[in-house]
Amino acid sequence: MPNALNLALKAEMRPGAGLLIPGAANALAARVIEEAGFRAFLVTGAGIANTFLGVPDVGLVSVTELAEHVAAMRDAVNLPMIADGDTGFGNAVNVGRTVRLLERAGANAMQLEDQTFPKKCGHFEGKDVIPRDEMVQKIKAAVDARQDQDFQILARTDARAVEGMQAALDRANAYREAGADMLFVEAPRSLEELAAIPKGAPGVHICNMVIGGKTPLLPAAELGAMGYAGVVYANAALQASLLAMQQVLGHIHRNGSIAGVEDRIMMFEDRQRMVRHDHYKALEKRYTLRDG
């Protein structure tokens, strides 16, 4: 039976669509994304590392921890989901297992990148990449491992920072030929480089708008006009919530009261609505035994 969310993601991800794709670090963030009206989201590996472990994005999250987060998000929302599979957690054989785990957990696509292990955030310095042919084999393994042919493989290259833009484009073309459904050239550094990517490596591309990162921040409409299918804000929600927590808790610590920052707090009723408290109250009522 066809997976409806796999098909929905394929329909949305077309060159020029400029689909906005926010990132979620946990199931609660995924609920906020769904409520806001977005049509797809990314499970952010950096976000999981930051929120779950309190560490930077340097390859410390395990594949089973990632799969558990994906499964929790799938239970929470009914949106197409792209899971960040980092480097696949090993060689081509490991990649196959990673694909199967994430597909079974409820992802509709998996991002696979060509960094060496341990990987680093795409906008950190000091990255390195594996040989292009090795990544080609990992992509082939990912394609072979998926159970549903509509489960998409998103191939990311970080070669721009290591080998230059032309090498990154060459890699993207090779990854598409190896079977990747979508492409992602990470961390271009100018408007000219952004525009060159969909032209130099035709296919279904996403780009990553990192607040404070190396890539110029452009509106989705402008990026769509360049040919991008998806525009990812992988950690905008995380950065916004982190700043709000810091500001509100700092205010409480300094003043001994919440007074003065109430407008930065979601009210109790809205919080319960966001986590569907009424749904669980109805379930409890439905299954409660009654005398007589």
Rank of each mutant, 00 (worst) to 15 (best):
M1Q: 09
L7C: 08
A11E: 15
M13C: 02
I21C: 12
G23T: 05
N26H: 06
A29D: 10
A36I: 04
A36G: 09
G37Q: 15
T44D: 09
G47E: 14
A49H: 04
N50A: 08
N50P: 00
T51W: 13
V55W: 08
V55P: 02
V55F: 14
T64A: 14
L66V: 10
A67E: 04
A67M: 02
V70E: 13
A83T: 00
T87K: 01
T87F: 03
N91I: 14
R97I: 03
T98H: 10
V99I: 15
M110R: 12
D114N: 07
K127D: 07
M135V: 07
V136I: 03
K138F: 13
I139R: 06
A142N: 08
Q147K: 14
I153T: 08
I153S: 08
T157N: 00
A161N: 04
Q166P: 00
A172W: 05
A174F: 08
A174E: 06
E177H: 08
L183Y: 13
V185L: 05
V185A: 02
P188M: 01
A196W: 11
P198N: 02
A201L: 02
A201Y: 01
A201M: 02
I206M: 15
M209F: 11
A220G: 14
L223G: 13
A229N: 08
V232L: 15
N235Y: 04
A236R: 06
Q239N: 09
Q239S: 04
S241A: 12
L242V: 02
M245A: 13
Q247L: 05
V248F: 00
L249D: 01
L249M: 05
E262R: 11
D263R: 09
I265Y: 15
I265C: 13
F268E: 14
F268P: 05
E269A: 15
Q272R: 13
R273K: 15
D278T: 12
K281E: 13
R286C: 05
